[in-house]
Design a protein around this nucleic acid. Structure first.
Lengths: 341, 341
DNA sequence: TGAGTTTATGCAATCGATTTCATGTCCGGT
DNA sequence: ACCGGACATGAAATCGATTGCATAAACTCA
């Protein structure tokens, strides 16, 4: 057969010390004398010892893992975020579990169950659609302080939230279009009930009012962050009598669908109509035309969420509340230009 | 403070039986009498007991987790696969760990380390770029039979492989173009050294020869599965004196970049040039023009890999080797049409 | 009725680490 | 020379489950 992994007993025997000493060398070397420390480290080398996580977790009453709840792993938007999160946990001895809440919907008891099981020590949710009951169950079993929301969040709950400054992003987009000379600006929203939909729509409306731009209710088009919804929006716009000269989309994917639809309908982007996206996913820079958009620091968002959660897990301090919003940035590319009345 | 999770002891006390009995009720109910079984189940309800995974894993000498190695989580291609994998593990009491091998490159000892640690019981690698040394270390520590490759694989190694019939996909694409009347067919490859690049290129070359289609070396354009490489390929093609009338791309993303580039260069798709992709990712159906492509059953591939790995983990049987290739399918949409010489 | 099964259950060892507590040694100060 | 403290180490309890073995009760069959 194959060689069984060495246990702490094996190391202790090899080094001629007790298991307690081996354990101390590994986790608290200051307590051990120079001589024995070296002997133990040598024995560790020789035996190829690695600490058994199950045993350690059992003894330390922890799970050694965190769970990331992703609404839909397929959306390119999440990739950079996940990379940032993983990076944030490198060297922390927490394993990162990822689950797709769309293809594996959570029951109310599932998340708290993972905590009770000792499967996870903490969670980062990119899904703002968790039920209040599910969260209440987590709080009840003491997991409340170990859940962090990222990008999305649940209204009326007091969990830490890391997110971009969505309102500011909307503001930047509108101001950019206004600076180019656009007055008739449409908006394709996210799905109803999504917290980001609200934040971006309201930011956009506020800025439009501030700048005194004209308002038409049909210029606010309901979407759902998908390529298809952008495509549908294009049809709506093509059919309008009083067409906007620019469109601010709630997500880059929407912008892609929109642009494709507009071009298929005979318009040119940006000559006939300007388009601004939101997110700045990888593809946006190489789309044709390259997309002007609001950049979210996806990697940074992920890292920050990991940091905040690690901090929670380490200190068990329960000061909740929202983290300062992460800055966004306007990236000007080729999909916007002055209107050509 | 919060209520501590109930242990098996608590349940045993509540039901007036020993912990052994509780354990049996939960894992091997047939051994226990009707009466006590009911009493125990009641006690489980009342206490809200859930078995502690760390303890169970320690005792059973398992990790309760599998690791999925994904080359780049950001690529939409992987989404459906991951969904299929997760689905395959639902109800199996294995946790699914996901890691991005691009943003977190594996050292030679990392993967085997996870096995030795008792962090994972098995792995599914979507990355065909694992080093021989890393794999050798896994084999050495007895983890050889618990690694499954999916989509990609490492040449010269005897791990089970689940993958689509890449050669057949290439054949279908070329035959489709040939049936439409195309003779001058170009191909944008994947990255050098990638196993799929080879499989698809060779499938395409073989079929082209079989049909007696003309060959020009510049019609085989080096790409890397990315949108950008499609875009570059467009420039190459636009600059050719003897232009192909159709292009078979090694991935849908490449096709998107290619089409965008061709259109920007003044050609029409499919009127002036036809384009076929490979993968059929979500976006392909709603791209403009909708993409004709070779569909891989991503969900099914993921599920199958999960099944094969679960099987391995359960039976500890070591019969390795390649699984039968998963079928692919030609999906005809709007990006291909007869040539218009 | 008694020997031999079968069935149901409990006791206690075990998995591999961490950590408390006790012990022993060495040192400096008086 | 003696005492107190600092330091190094080991013995053993502990985390929460699973399971081999022993035992007791119930049942079968001649």
């Amino acid at each position: 057969m194959f060689q069984k992994p060495a246990t702490i007993q094996d190391v202790a025997r090899a080094a001629g010390v007790s298991t307690a000493t081996v354990s101390r060398v590994l986790s608290n070397p200051g307590l051990v004398s120079e001589r024995t420390r070296e002997a133990v480290l040598l024995a560790v080398q020789e035996t190829g010892y690695r600490v058994n996580q199950a045993a350690r977790n059992l003894r330390m009453q922890r799970a050694g893992a965190v769970l990331i709840l992703v609404p839909n792993l397929g959306k390119p938007f999440y990739s950079g975020i996940l990379a940032g999160i993983s990076e944030g946990f490198v060297g922390s001895d927490y394993a990162v579990l990822i689950t797709d809440t769309e293809s594996n919907p959570l029951q109310d008891a599932t998340l708290s169950g993972y905590f009770i099981d000792g499967r996870i020590d903490g969670a980062i949710s990119l899904d703002g659609g968790l039920s209040a009951e599910a969260l209440a169950q987590c709080t009840r079993c003491g997991a409340g302080g170990r859940i962090v929301f990222l990008c999305e969040w649940v209204e009326g709950q007091d969990f830490p939230v890391i997110s971009s400054d969505n309102a500011e992003g909307a503001r930047l987009a509108i101001r950019h279009l206004h600076d180019l000379g656009h007055k008739k600006i449409a908006h394709v929203t996210g799905p109803d009930g999504n917290i980001l939909t609200t934040a971006r729509r309201e930011g956009m409306v506020a800025e439009r009012e501030r700048l005194g731009l004209p308002v038409r209710s049909e210029w606010i088009i309901r979407g759902d962050f998908s390529l298809e919804s952008g495509h549908e929006a294009a049809h709506r716009i093509l059919a309008m009598r009083d067409r906007p000269t620019a469109v601010f989309c709630s997500a880059d994917m929407v912008a892609f669908g929109l642009i494709a639809g507009l071009i298929a309908g005979g318009l040119r982007v940006p000559e006939d109509i300007s388009v601004v996206g939101f997110d700045d996913i990888e593809m946006s820079g190489s789309f044709v035309p390259a997309l002007t958009t609001i950049r979210q620091d996806r990697h940074g968002l992920g890292r920050r969420a990991a940091e905040v959660l690690l901090d929670r897990l380490a200190k068990a301090n329960d000061q909740s509340g929202r983290e300062p919003a992460m800055p966004v940035e306007l990236v000007i590319r080729a999909s916007t230009a002055p209107p050509t009345d």
